[in-house]
């Protein structure tokens, strides 16, 4: 099949960008979306034009490197699927496809479709962990975890950190990303001691990065390749509220 692409091209972080038009010829429906871009890129290089830069690595939907707005939808038309796992059979011959990078102040464009998502790393660094230095913790089976909790924690932990939630959110909010980690760790007994501190710190970092707020449109959950639920956001807010009360109390007690 043949397609017309409109792709955001931007030579560098501070350069001006714009949409460019390309033709993708002889595309097989069995190709993945990124393989289609590979074909376009090879023909660009052959004709002496700079190839389209895009992030990708595992190409099996787990590393979270890839991600682009495809016809205005984060990761394209297939639900629960990262861009690398989207196949061309989701499109028709003669289709026009618009491809843009994730748009967020906190995800500045580096080049073409490549954006800088290090804001996510800083959110995790602010508190998205359990402090358990390498050593000799107790035997793993000394901490029983109800299957329901373990399953729910796993649902939240499935986040691949791709940034589609931010890209799809009309407010450019990173709430789903942050809430997924807060939920994952907050649902487990091991995560309890740091639960409140984690919520306050991660939320503060999320805000400091310049992400927008959550109005529960639900676009993030729809765009998420791992279909993480916005229920996690309610959990985050609850932890945040509880933390507000407790830490305030702590301070009052300490002061007295």
């Amino acid at each position: 099949m043949n397609l017309t692409l409109h792709v955001w091209r931007q030579p560098g972080p501070d350069a001006r960008g714009g949409m460019e038009r390309y033709e993708a010829r002889d595309i097989s429906p069995d190709m993945s979306f990124l393989e289609m871009l590979d074909v376009v890129n090879e023909s660009l290089v052959e004709s002496g034009k700079p190839p389209i830069a895009f992030d990708h690595d595992c190409r099996e939907g787990i590393c979270g490197s890839c991600g682009m707005m495809i016809n205005g939808v984060a990761h394209g038309p297939m639900r629960g699927t990262a861009t690398c796992q989207l196949h061309m059979r989701s499109f028709g011959d003669g289709d026009t496809i618009y491809i843009e990078p994730w748009r967020s102040r906190a995800f500045p464009v580096i080049k073409d479709l490549v954006v800088n998502r290090s804001a996510f790393d800083r959110i995790i660094a602010s508190g998205g962990f359990i402090t358990a230095p390498t050593g000799s913790p107790q035997d793993a089976n000394n901490i029983p975890v109800a299957k329901r909790d373990a399953d729910e924690a796993m649902d939240a932990a499935a986040c691949i950190g791709c940034g589609a939630c931010v890209a799809a959110c009309p407010n450019g909010s990173a709430s789903l990303f942050t809430a997924a980690k807060i939920s994952h760790l907050g649902l487990l007994p091991q995560g309890q001691p740091e639960r409140e501190r984690r919520a306050t710190r991660m939320v503060a970092q999320m805000d400091a990065e310049g992400f927008g707020h959550c109005t529960l449109y639900g676009e993030c959950q729809e765009a998420c390749p791992k279909q993480i639920s916005i229920d996690t956001i309610a959990r985050m807010n609850r932890d945040f509220l509880v933390a507000t009360r407790h830490e305030h109390e702590e301070k009052v007690l300490g002061g007295g």
Binding site: F129, I130, A132, T134, G135, S136, P137, Q138, D139, A140, I143, A150, A153, M154, A157, H184, L185, L188, Q190, G191
Partner: peptide, 10 residues
């Protein structure tokens, strides 16, 4: 043991 302590949801 280490991974469970870190919160890996096995």
């Amino acid at each position: 043991d280490q991974c469970v302590a870190q919160g890996v949801p096995f």
